[in-house]
């Protein structure tokens, strides 16, 4: 999954901030999926909120570098890990 794929899915979720974390709940038309709620930690919350139209994985990694003062390589790894985790969550 890349950032733009996730961006297209974002409108199908409702998000609410609780402290430094974010809860995201998928809109669903099926009773079987109603208990699927996801909790994003501070970094994942920042990434989720940074997703925008036309942003690339590299753009998001740059934002992460600026916000959390991590080096570029670590930021790229964090973005990859975030996208991999979201991929797993959204395929559940």
């Amino acid at each position: 999954m890349d950032i733009q794929t996730l961006y297209k899915m974002k409108s199908k979720f409702v998000a609410r901030e609780v402290g430094s974390e974010l809860i995201i709940v998928p809109l669903t038309g099926n009773v079987a999926q109603m208990s699927e709620l996801f909790t994003l930690n501070e970094t994942a919350k920042f990434l989720w909120e940074s997703i925008s139209e036309n942003a690339s994985d590299e753009d998001i990694a740059k934002l992460l570098t600026d916000e959390f003062e991590v080096d570029a390589e670590t930021a790229r790894k964090d973005v990859s890990a975030f996208l991999a985790n979201m991929d797993v969550l959204l395929k559940k």
Binding site: V18, E21, L22, I23, L37, T39, L40
Partner: peptide, 11 residues
């Protein structure tokens, strides 16, 4: 935090 909210809301 968020974990308490999501865990209760699931039910």
């Amino acid at each position: 935090g968020a974990m308490a909210v999501t865990r209760v809301m699931a039910f």
